[in-house]
């Protein structure tokens, strides 16, 4: 890519136009489909789409940022990244697991639909995540301890 910088620069505006044009066509096809397909039931579709958009942008994401900031605020600098990573994994796993844990999809006539104990499964996953996290923190603490003797080696996890 770097070897042919000049032709690439000349092609770029055309690539951009092509992407925007193709994208507009595809999106228009989808929008016309949503508007005209009666099985979509437009008012319900629109309500759902607006709910997930605003639910994410104005509720779930800011809440996740605030909770994450509060939970990691008083952690020492060496522990913070690991805990932040673990919180991230926890939160996205929860998104996937929650509908299964709630189990509204279970069917009395079909025991093979949602056959597992998902609360147990979710807790097992959380245990695995936080066990690994504890291991990483312990490794960091050990690596850190000999190099910086002093009062700030207190361990928190």
């Amino acid at each position: 890519m770097t070897a042919t910088r000049r032709p690439a620069d000349r092609a770029t505006p055309w690539i951009r136009r092509l992407l925007v044009a193709a994208g507009t066509l595809a999106a228009a096809y989808g929008i016309v489909g949503v508007l005209t397909d009666p099985s979509v039931s437009l008012p319900n579709y629109a309500r759902y789409a607006v709910t997930v958009l605003f639910g994410h942008d104005l509720l779930v994401l800011p809440l996740a940022i605030i909770v994450g900031a509060v939970l990691t605020r008083w952690l020492p600098g060496w522990a913070r990244p690991v805990v932040q990573g673990a919180l991230f994994v926890t939160v996205v796993l929860t998104v996937v697991a929650l509908p299964l844990v709630l189990g509204y999809g279970r069917r009395p006539d079909d025991p093979s639909a949602l056959p597992r104990d998902y609360t147990r499964g979710f807790l097992l996953c959380l245990a695995a995540i936080w066990l690994v996290t504890a291991g990483l923190l312990a490794a960091r603490a050990l690596r850190r301890a000999p190099s910086t003797p002093g009062p700030d080696t207190q361990e928190r996890s």
Binding site: V20, T24, A27, G30
Partner: peptide, 12 residues
């Protein structure tokens, strides 16, 4: 249908 909207908006 939303897949078409998604892929189209992504290309744009």
């Amino acid at each position: 249908w939303t897949a078409w909207i998604f892929i189209g908006a992504l290309l744009v």
